[in-house]
Structures are given as structure tokens and as C-alpha cells.
């Protein structure tokens, strides 16, 4: 088990809003702009759909980093959703920091549908920062054993 841990790839969950960032991720794909396979994307209608519970759940289940991507401020498909997300996440992330989940493991980024290159750059950067932190063990005790 110990040996495996050394080779363990980081596990990153990315929540992407359907209108901007998920489309940006698609554009990164069709432009063949690579980023690590550690990043797994979950599609949500809007960044404001991301319930803090989802992030807690991800960390509890062993995610090493969670990133939320939405439309640029002012460009939200639903007008105001990303503003809610921004406020909510800044509170949540400082609470997580307090709990011992480092600030570098959480991030909010604005990526538009036209920013495939930005999406790829953001994911490369985030993945390398999370990898540098190593495995996230802070919530391990909370983990449900199966």
C-alpha cells in the first residue's frame, strides 16, 4: 500500500458550468490542448449549482483538489450565478483552509467558451500545484470504509 502511494496520481474534480467553462474544456479538446488526465470534469448548469456539500464530499472521498470554473463575472448565462458561486466559495475555501485543506487545493476560475487555451493552462497549473502538495490526507478519517 505504501509503495502504491508513492506513485499515486493526484485526483482532481473540476466542476464546469455548461455554458462557458464546459464549452471551454471542449474547445481545449478540439484544439488538442492537453492537460493531465487526473482532472475529471463534472458538468453543472451554472457555477452557482455547485453545492458546498459536493466539495466536502469530494475531499472526504479522497480528492486532492477541487476546482470550480464558471463564466467571467458579468457574462453568466443566468446573469448572476457566478457571483453567488464566487461569494459562496470564498467562504467555503477559507473554512476548508481552517480545517487543514490547503488553499492551493481549491480554486475558482473564470473560463469562457472561447478560452480553450486558458482552460488547458489553468488545469495544467492547478494539477501541478496539487501534485506538489501531495496526497490530501486531512479528511481521511471521515472517509467511509467500503
Amino acid at each position: 500500500m505504501q509503495e502504491m502511494n508513492n506513485e499515486k496520481r493526484p485526483l482532481i474534480v473540476a466542476f464546469c458550468c455548461n455554458w462557458c467553462s464546459y464549452a471551454g474544456a471542449d474547445l481545449a479538446g478540439s484544439s488538442r490542448l492537453s492537460y493531465p488526465a487526473d482532472v475529471k470534469i463534472i458538468r453543472v448548469p451554472c457555477s452557482c449549482r455547485v453545492n458546498p456539500m459536493f466539495i466536502l464530499k469530494a475531499f472526504q472521498r479522497g480528492a486532492d483538489g477541487v476546482i470550480i470554473c464558471g463564466c467571467h463575472p458579468g457574462d453568466c448565462h443566468y446573469t448572476t450565478g457566478n457571483y453567488y458561486a464566487r461569494r459562496r466559495m470564498s467562504l467555503l475555501f477559507s473554512m476548508l483552509d481552517y480545517l487543514g485543506i490547503e488553499r492551493e487545493r481549491t480554486r475558482v476560475e473564470w473560463v469562457s467558451a472561447a478560452e480553450g487555451a486558458k482552460f488547458s493552462a489553468v488545469m495544467n497549473d492547478f494539477a501541478s500545484k496539487v501534485a506538489a502538495l501531495g496526497e490530501n490526507k486531512r479528511l481521511e478519517d471521515l472517509r467511509c470504509k467500503e
Binding site: 463534472i42 453543472v44 448548469p45 449549482r49 455547485v50 453545492n51 459536493f54 448565462h77 443566468y78 450565478g81
Partner: peptide, 26 residues
């Protein structure tokens, strides 16, 4: 329009979004 802002705000867990429900995303 199905943005889901209400679902996350709801303190009692009454609001949910069809097709992108809390349970589904969890």
C-alpha cells in the same frame, strides 16, 4: 431556466434541480 441557484441556497434542502439533483451530482 434551471440554473440551480435556489437549490444551493435552500437551507432546508427542499429545493432540488431535476436532471442535476444533489444526489445525482454527489
Amino acid at each position: 431556466q434551471g440554473c440551480g441557484a435556489c437549490t444551493v441556497t435552500c437551507p432546508s434542502g427542499a429545493m432540488d434541480l431535476k436532471g442535476f439533483s444533489n444526489k445525482q451530482i454527489m
